[in-house]
Design a protein around this nucleic acid. Sequence first.
DNA 1: GCAATAACTAACAAAATTGTTAGTCGACAA
DNA 2: TTGTCGACTAACAATTTTGTTAGTTATTGC
Lengths: 128, 128
Amino acid sequence: MRKEQSTNYANEQFLSQVCERNSAISMISGRWKAQIVYYIYEGSNRFNLLQKKLPKISETVLARQLKELEKHAILVKAEVPGTVPTGIKYILTNKGLDLVPILESLCDWGKIYAEGKEIFAGTEAENA
Amino acid sequence: MRKEQSTNYANEQFLSQVCERNSAISMISGRWKAQIVYYIYEGSNRFNLLQKKLPKISETVLARQLKELEKHAILVKAEVPGTVPTGIKYILTNKGLDLVPILESLCDWGKIYAEGKEIFAGTEAENA
DNA sequence: GCAATAACTAACAAAATTGTTAGTCGACAA
DNA sequence: TTGTCGACTAACAATTTTGTTAGTTATTGC
């Protein structure tokens, strides 16, 4: 998948070293990831529940996104006891849970400006 | 650039309508964007200052990222008075400034887990 | 006149992400 | 026994993002 000799890859590494901010963003910036985290947080913690919430996503893509979230330890898989065949649910780790309020502030940030909050250039006193 | 008939585009639109969170993430998820916002915030507000901070970025790519940030009203361009030919500086808007603390919390989030904070599955009491 | 600097753009190529098609496996239901 | 469900995977194609190469414009310094 990743070409470890590419400039693209090297630049990603470089940015991660400049600040964790950049790796954090790359962890949550897949097409469906933030929304998946949020739905799991709200209780849609099974594969098929997520599919119902996201009717446009294909199974393949959902599985892939979940796997990447698992790779970054934002969630883990757990067996649902007493189901045959064994069902699987997704549980946010503490790392994933800590992300939720940050996603909420991003949400608010997007919302207030989308709803028409005035935008202007920073301090006018800035004549450097 | 964008194919407005693609599934990919439709899915992006769909997610934006589910929650502003998703459009917010797409605004900041370009390779260099968060870091550029941060450097401008810290005072590296000229094209060439940003190039010095990010030696690996090419001019073309930097110009492209700045243009996208401008499109999302996170920053604006301003002429630097008294320079010939007219210099240009980048100023964060209030929208861009509001983003900074969110980027800081993402940074902290990334950092504490990268530094070894223990990760475990959410509440064990969750037997749903 | 020749090179250099600041701040770009266009066209193209490389790489990465996203989406599609098809198939798996075990258990139950009709 | 054919079909369905839940939870996937592999291979491939479409789309998007990122990076590269080669310009541009105006002006000052040599």
